[in-house]
Design a protein around this nucleic acid. Sequence first.
DNA 1: ATTAACTCAGACAATGATGTCCGATATAGA
DNA 2: TCTATATCGGACATCATTGTCTGAGTTAAT
Lengths: 205, 205
Amino acid sequence: MTKKRTTAEAPARKRRRADAERSVAAVLDAALDALASDPDSSMSEIARRAGVVRATIYVHFPTREALLDAVMERSVADVAEAMRGAEPQRGEPVEALERVLRATWRELARFHALLAINTARLSAEELRRRHVPMLDQLQPLVKRGQKQGAFRNDLPVAWHLAVIRAIVHTASHESQGGRIPESEAEAAMLSTALSAISPPQPRNS
Amino acid sequence: MTKKRTTAEAPARKRRRADAERSVAAVLDAALDALASDPDSSMSEIARRAGVVRATIYVHFPTREALLDAVMERSVADVAEAMRGAEPQRGEPVEALERVLRATWRELARFHALLAINTARLSAEELRRRHVPMLDQLQPLVKRGQKQGAFRNDLPVAWHLAVIRAIVHTASHESQGGRIPESEAEAAMLSTALSAISPPQPRNS
DNA sequence: ATTAACTCAGACAATGATGTCCGATATAGA
DNA sequence: TCTATATCGGACATCATTGTCTGAGTTAAT
């Protein structure tokens, strides 16, 4: 189902035959699908979906953990790349953020299920660590916005990043659950994220 | 470790001996603790922590699933009660929300780990369904705020609720991870939540 | 066309968890 | 004190899953 090959693969130790390459990709895709429908999918299930025998998976991934890690890594890399493609450094902070978030949100939908899996599987710190490639795309933008006064400065950047991440996930979640139409979700997510990190209105009763 | 008994227990079929009551409570507490440190804690582990033999758990909870459900239910009930205690219906919407969120946030910290577990364990709809007691406390307040113009009206209530939930969780998460001190987390969560659901500033370049 | 890399099919041991059952013992409650 | 109710301690069958291995067939690359 999922087809994506954009990611610049890290050149593994030995050259793999085109054959093997395909298997690995199939397994990763299958794992993503399988885990989406059941976070505790077994290796058998994943193999079945990949159209491959279980042992084959172990040829490429020494252990189940390793496979999960690989899935995670590839997904994060894909999203990070999409973000980079939206050029976070270009233009007004507010507009740049909007651009980047749009790109992120669409991409993220595919990987929605991973959140739950990895939240359960990894420690909070580990999870954080793996998200770095994505946060790295956003952090400079948010900082820049703070300097220019477009984003509020009385809260740490890390907090803003966490909030944005949460809002994007929420939008994806709500839309996935059919509680809000996809188009509306995108708009809601954008304007809410903006409001959340914009300087608060000084006016109060 | 955790001690709470406030919840008004539903009168179970048969009267339980004070003895059994204690066991059940110990098991629930132990489960909460155990699952916090490892979302896949076994029944043995939970029993060990509860100072009880594994078979005893099965006397009260027919299955592992049932136990997890019970833990979830009790936790949600506790939080909902804390929220109710903060009187969502009293005073200005903004101040009421602040009051309720403060109460929620503190209570929630204890149950922080449950989120991951249940996200992985339950379908999105199921998860939602179980959160109802908490959302029920917030919904009227948000609606009221919308009517009075204190909260933005161009987005559905459900979305606001989801966003608030996400922000509270984020604050708990960030603070738990030590990336932001607890006091600061509370303030950040409050002002961000407020910003997120307040009417956006019309002024734009 | 030859070879090295890869996949298949299936069997295998090891592990660890769940849920059940038992007889013996303790204890709360009347 | 008496009895129903619980817990204990441990054994038990069942089950699913992981990870390994092997030998025979395929396929990609040079």
